[in-house]
Design a protein around this nucleic acid. Structure first.
Lengths: 337, 337
DNA sequence: TTTGCCTGTGGCATCGATCCCACATGGATC
DNA sequence: GATCCATGTGGGATCGATGCCACAGGCAAA
């Protein structure tokens, strides 16, 4: 056993201090009776040996783990990175460790593996941002509490934290309407789930309230990435009957639209107004600044962790969805018709 | 024991399948002899019960963990978010799970707790981006292999992955010199550690090679955040003897400089040229685009994981530092004097 | 003196998975 | 027919930490 400095275990501490493992455990954890001098001695030896308890072994014995999983859609997107930062920090403040996984360039098979890894690690619960539907299903089947952030697959069945998509989208659209715009294009990735659906509804509601009919040709599914959005935007804005304003439903699509506008040599807001959902850093750097519906993504992450911890406290309560405010930040990219 | 659907264990699988735990273990892991029909039966039972092995228990028994820790400076900085994404993905591809922690708004005490958590979780090794010096010290003391990314506290003592800071800074400075600039300011956070030191050296080397003396007044310590950089930049660029070009040593300081320039109403590159180290997304969105030294941060993260895994294979080999290329991307923010 | 309680400590089983070892069976070889 | 080996299976110890229970003293009340 002459291993080169094996890591110290509780047994090592106990033997060095000349007490039993039970006593050492009590001294270190502070549970149960320990005579003061003995306690001091154990603490000193533990310190001397550089003893750090093995949380794996502890969790195994106690059958609980103070760790949560976080699965984010894509860390390279500032929105999700901020969300992860907020969740990570809140978890740490609450004494939980986090298993943060970036779904990034993963395949469907990867998603399954990630979900299984969370179960295998026996995390207390998982924070989920939009990925494949298989993940929440798998976790639900294995009775792992989840909190869906940004988008909810099962609004009634699970906890969630979302921004008020409809109100935000409505505010953005109304802002354009007030400036006199009537031909307002909506760039959106999907309209089937809560996020896209809410933003679409807000857009429609604003138009309806202003007595403007929804033109299906102006609602364009751009795909999920910058390139898809850019290509569609070039096509639409390069045509003869182009809209006077564009509402991009998220920061990625807004970037595509912005690049297309620059490419076509159009002036903002002279030729076209642009408003985005989700205020990315670049929107306040460019000239003119991009009017955007800001959502506090750091706070969303933190709120999700708080919701999850509340769920762990009360496993049987009814699912709750926390709805955060979205606020319109007016900048130079929107102007009168 | 009539618990409401307790999670299935290996014992449950074994009993249901009518075999011993040993046999069930062999069937599932594929190690040792198992008759084919028995193997099939065990696999079917495991599937039916939704059995997922407890990696904690497995690691405890095997005394190895296929997980690594990743500590990033600040996820809200795109550079570190990308780095984390790259590391996370590479780790997953290699079959490792990651404990990703965002240092974000942490105090020194938090740092100590984070380092201890890594040890407590018995991670195989840790990827470190710049934080407090206490972290690498603590981990080294506990014999946890580390790879320092972006900045190395102990270049000779530990593995590292860095970009070629000197060459990148030199290229940026030479670019400005070639355009005729002579009064080139350097905005930098620190010059004591590898990152800042390398960039400073590159700047000095380029000036020296061109026969231009280094003016200490033009090398400004701006602090670590956007606001500090902006304030210093306003002060310096608002004065009468302002430089004709600014080299910002990272994306944060570049943002401060950019905001200051906009605030002062200066034109780029007419009044002043700007070049940045680290190509952030906004730099290609603004007009004119910002000339920048690009480092592949996703690849840095991936390279760090590969280095760490190699270290786990060979614990005693000499420390290695991987140096990645930095390439200058010329955009509109730099122009002739 | 006996009973009872409180304090302090150690023995030992336990969590879930693994794996060494013993043992059992069957067929092939001498 | 005895020996041997290959194959297949189960018993039980083990990893590190915890916590129940038993037990040893000491002290106070009856």
């Amino acid at each position: 056993m002459s291993e080169v400095a094996r890591r110290a275990t509780l047994r090592d501490v106990a033997e060095t201090a000349g007490v039993s493992r039970s006593t050492a455990s009590r001294a270190l954890s502070g549970r149960g009776y320990v005579a003061e001098p003995v306690r001091k001695k154990v603490l000193r030896t533990a310190e001397k040996l550089g003893y750090v308890p093995d949380v794996m072994a502890r969790n195994l014995k106690q059958q609980v783990s103070r760790s949560i999983g976080i699965l984010v859609t894509d860390l390279r997107n500032q929105f999700y990175a901020d969300l992860a930062a907020g969740a990570s920090q809140q978890a740490r403040l609450s004494g939980y460790t986090t298993m943060l996984v970036d779904d990034g360039l993963s395949s469907a098979a990867d998603d399954a593996a990630i979900a299984e890894a969370f179960v295998a690690l026996r995390v207390g619960g998982v924070i989920l941002t939009p990925t494949s539907a298989a993940v929440p299903e798998y976790l639900a089947r294995h009775r792992v509490p989840i909190v869906e952030v940004d988008r909810q697959f099962t609004p009634d069945g699970s906890d969630g934290v979302v921004v008020d998509n409809a109100a935000g989208a409505r505010a953005a659209t109304e802002h354009l309407l007030e400036l006199g715009h009537r031909r307002i294009a909506l760039f959106i990735d999907e309209t089937d789930w809560t996020t896209g659906r809410g933003r679409y509804d807000g857009y429609v509601a604003a138009l309806g309230a202003a007595g403007v009919a929804v033109d299906p040709d102006l609602v364009v599914a751009t795909g999920w990435d910058v390139e898809g959005s850019r290509a569609r935007a070039v096509q639409m804005l390069g045509g003869r009957s182009r809209p006077t304003a564009v509402f991009a439903a998220n920061n990625v699509l807004a970037e595509g639209a912005w690049r297309a506008i620059a490419e076509l040599g159009l002036s903002v807001p002279g030729d076209i107004s642009l408003v985005a959902f989700d205020d990315a850093p670049w929107m306040s750097m460019v000239t003119p600044g991009v009017t955007a519906v800001a959502q506090d993504s750091v706070e969303m992450g933190a709120a999700a962790v708080r919701r999850l911890l509340a769920r762990l406290e009360d496993p049987v309560g009814a699912p709750q969805t926390t709805i955060l405010d979205a606020t319109l930040r007016t900048r130079g990219s929107t102007g009168p018709l």
